[in-house]
Design a protein around this nucleic acid. Structure first.
Length: 786
DNA sequence: GTTCTAGAAC
DNA sequence: GTTCTAGAAC
């Protein structure tokens, strides 16, 4: 950037002076360590204009706060006539959006982008001490790395009046001067200033689409198509603790107890100890056997039984049973029984040590730890619960409260650990799963006395819930971890979990800001039955927190097909890089297909974002092609293409279903209503909504229990047999809304594909790439619309 | 998602 | 007594 003045010529700047002076909402955009706070301080130091700095790191009485607090403080400052700095990373459009609404038309919206190379930001944030948000050292490096793939440069179209890009200190200084010399009545011209390449954003978009973003984070530079490893020299502090550590008898107290057939453990047997550090690992105490006085023999049987059940589902991840005492009876029992069952000791072992200091003292990095919680989910009571709450600090209490207030025996709740927690910073723990086991101690609540039938049942449920929770964390984050460990190995690299750019979920979770530490849905019935104890969906939406659903084992079938189509050749009708077609295993009509997305991490329509629009169109196109094929075979059929708003099965899948509903598999109200009410989201509507607002908003599962109505004439029927009898003969026309916009596909309808040949571009597109063909396809779709 | 089954509805 | 639903378990 030569100078801002020169850039002004090639920007959409109007250069017009504004007659009325408005306060400025200046959104800083930059990685930790990019110098946002310094920028604000420098401007405020020299400026004669009243400024307020809204800093998320300190907004909560000097501690880190959340976005809502920032918005509130900023709004107050604006009302006082001040201009405000939004001093937080604001790294993507979503993070910035709410701040652009501040003050409506009465404020100017500016962005200053401190777009320094990620390496520089890492180096600065690792070195700094006394950072307001305590983001320094190894943790800072990890956070920066996590953010890099998420970076999305601001655009005027987001609602900014003026955007200034700074790539080096000279640019920053110039920008400080520009804003610092702004008097109370001055204003600045609109436009984009200092951006190196006008197509940088487009390039970034394409790179993101191709899942190949320049990891240096310098989107302004020439994009590259390979991922450069993060330099190793930034590996610092506690991250090096594993190296050279013998796990069997760690001098600081941790001791690994080998379980099963192998004497070699992954931590030490791996060629690079760092890679073991990034294997998703759950450390869990024995549930109910301490204070709740559960019989050790029975408990050890159940632990081994449940470990055996789950071990095949956790991929490369590991389970570690932890106990503080060297001569722990429960560890010894479990170890023996696990060995007897030949459970893989790389995936399950026992460990003697403090569950709150596994990495720092024991050299064992466990990204998830389980807490043997009490029903009130409160600290205290001694034992593991007290220790974990104490070690994690108030951050865990607050995060827990957001998710659940109480817990029933046999249930668990997953709590993502805020980065402000010591357990996160020191031990690398990203999630705590609170579990409540059965109580056999008459001195404690809900004592089962000696009812071990019930007790064993609840303990089994507790471990199922815990391991299911861990599976869901691994599935949401573990891909990144595994990719990462691979990358670490290749690069000799950085051992913190660094999400790769192709893992949207992990990417979302990687946000270090507490309000963005997105919400996980806890497990099992407790969230459902907890009633007022839990945040309802609206509250969750209000707090901009997303839910990651946990999926039961039976719900994984489609995901397994999508991930491993070779194992399911017999059911796959068609496959491309992006989608796969199969018959529904329990068809609810004469013709009932599923078009599955093959991307991992796209569990349901709720995960779909704007960037998935091409995929949705591909799925629609493939579904239409099959509908057309079926129509050629039977002209009397009609088809709908759509998604269940709350699917039961994991993996985004489009239903292509004929409207006869002539099937023995259609047995109950839920079946019927899931295809004939607004629970069934028309593919065309989904595509439009995703393009318009970036996601699908409707999520209506109440209609599943509504009365049974004919999907054609809308007459009500008392039960399924009577309804089926009616629909077998009802010839009424379909409701008007279905006849619009291609929602219904039939040989006689207005949306008729048979009258025109399938576009050649589609055939090519399906085999090659989305580019090019999708526009043509939709040109065809548009042409076909009435 | 399905299966199983207790008990409601007829 | 039979049919059907709805909830639990998987």
């Amino acid at each position: 950037m030569d100078s801002m003045e020169i850039d002004r010529e090639k920007t959409p700047s109007t250069g017009e002076e504004k007659k009325e002076t408005k306060p400025i909402v200046l959104v800083l955009v930059g990685l930790p360590g990019s110098g946002k706070s310094t920028f604000c301080e420098e401007v405020m130091r020299i400026s004669s204009r009243p400024w307020a700095r809204v800093c998320q790191d300190t907004i909560n009485n000097g501690k880190a706060g959340n976005k809502i607090q920032c918005l509130s403080v900023a709004a107050t400052a604006l009302k006082d006539g001040k201009s405000v700095f939004i001093d937080r990373c604001n790294i993507d459009r979503e993070q910035r959006a709410d701040f652009l609404k501040l003050g409506g038309q009465q404020t100017e919206k500016h962005a200053v982008v401190l777009d320094h190379p990620a390496k520089l930001c890492i180096s600065r944030s690792v070195k700094r001490i006394g950072h307001e948000g305590n983001l320094q050292g190894g943790k800072a490096a990890a956070v920066v790395n996590q953010m890099v793939p998420k970076k999305e440069l601001p655009k005027l179209s987001e609602g900014f009046d003026r955007i200034t890009f700074c790539y080096d200190e000279r640019d920053v200084k110039e920008a400080i001067n520009v804003y610092g010399s702004l008097g109370p009545l001055d204003s600045l011209p609109s436009g984009v200033f200092g951006q190196k390449k006008s197509d940088a954003k487009i390039q970034l978009g394409i790179m993101k689409f191709l899942k190949k973003v320049d990891p240096s984070g310098n989107a302004g530079s020439e994009p590259t198509v390979c991922q450069k490893p993060i330099p190793n020299e930034i590996s610092v502090g506690e991250d090096t603790v594993l190296q050279g550590t013998k796990m069997d008898s760690h001098p600081s107290g941790g001791a690994l107890e080998k379980v099963g057939k192998s004497n070699e453990l992954d931590i030490t047997s791996t060629s690079d100890a760092n890679s073991a550090d990034s294997i998703p690992t759950l450390a869990f105490p024995s549930i109910s056997t301490a204070d709740f006085q559960f019989n050790l023999e029975k408990a050890s049987d159940i632990i081994v039984e449940k470990v055996e059940e789950f071990i095949s589902r956790i991929g490369k991840a590991r389970l570690v049973l932890v106990d503080l005492s060297q001569g722990s009876k429960i560890l010894s029992l479990v170890k023996t029984k696990a060995a007897r069952k030949n459970i893989d000791s790389n995936k399950f072992f026992t460990f003697v040590g403090d569950i709150t200091r596994l990495r720092s003292q024991g050299g064992l990095h466990c990204n998830v730890i389980a807490n043997a919680a009490n029903w009130r989910l409160k600290p205290g009571g001694g034992g593991v619960n007290a220790a974990i709450f104490k070690a994690a600090g108030s951050a865990l209490e607050i995060a827990t409260k957001e998710r659940a207030v109480t817990l029933s025996p046999g249930k668990s709740v997953i709590v993502p650990l805020p980065s402000s927690s010591l357990l996160f910073a020191r031990e690398g723990v990203t999630h705590v799963i609170h579990v409540l086991g059965p109580n056999m101690n008459p001195m404690r609540p809900d004592c089962l006395k000696d009812d071990y039938v019930q007790g064993c049942k609840i303990l089994r449920e507790a471990y199922s819930s815990l391991f299911e929770g861990f599976v869901s964390v691994v599935r949401s984050h573990g891909v990144a971890s595994i990719h990462n460990s691979r990358r670490s190995l290749e690069s000799g690299g950085f051992q913190e979990v660094i999400p790769t750019n192709d893992d949207q979920k992990a990417k979302r979770e990687a946000d270090y800001e507490s309000e963005k530490n997105k919400k996980y849905k806890g497990l099992g019935g407790d969230l459902k039955s907890g009633g007022s104890s839990f945040m309802d969906e609206e509250k969750i939406q209000d707090k901009s927190i997303n839910i990651t659903k946990s999926w039961a084992s039976w719900a994984q079938a489609l995901h397994d097909v999508a991930m491993h189509p070779n194992k399911h050749k017999s059911v796959v009708l068609e496959i491309s890089d992006d989608v796969l077609v199969m018959n529904d295993a329990y068809p609810k009509a004469q013709r009932h297909l599923l078009v599955l997305a093959r991307a991992d991490g796209l569990d349901s329509i709720a995960d779909v974002r704007r960037e998935h629009s091409p995929l949705l169109k591909t799925m629609h196109a493939v579904g239409l092609k099959w509908a057309e094929k079926f129509l050629n075979e039977n002209k009397s059929l009609s088809f709908r293409l759509g998604y269940h708003s709350v699917p039961s099965m994991r993996q985004l899948h489009l239903h292509v279903i004929s409207q006869d509903f002539d099937s023995n598999h259609l047995k109950n109200k839920k079946h019927w209503n899931s295809f004939t009410t607004t629970f069934f989201l028309n593919s065309v509507d989904v595509i439009k909504e995703v393009e318009d607002v970036g996601r699908v908003t409707s999520k209506d599962d109440k209609c599943l229990t509504m009365e049974l109505r004919c999907h054609r004439c809308r007459s009500a029927h008392p039960n399924i047999p009577r309804l089926k009898s009616h629909i077998s003969s009802c010839q009424a026309p379909f409701p008007a809304d279905l006849l619009q916009n291609g929602r219904l596909v039939s040989s006689t309808g207005c949306f008729c594909y048979q009258t025109k040949p399938w576009p050649k571009s589609l055939a090519v597109g399906l085999k090659t790439s989305w580019f090019g063909f999708r526009l043509e396809l939709f040109k065809d779709v548009d042409d076909a619309l009435p």
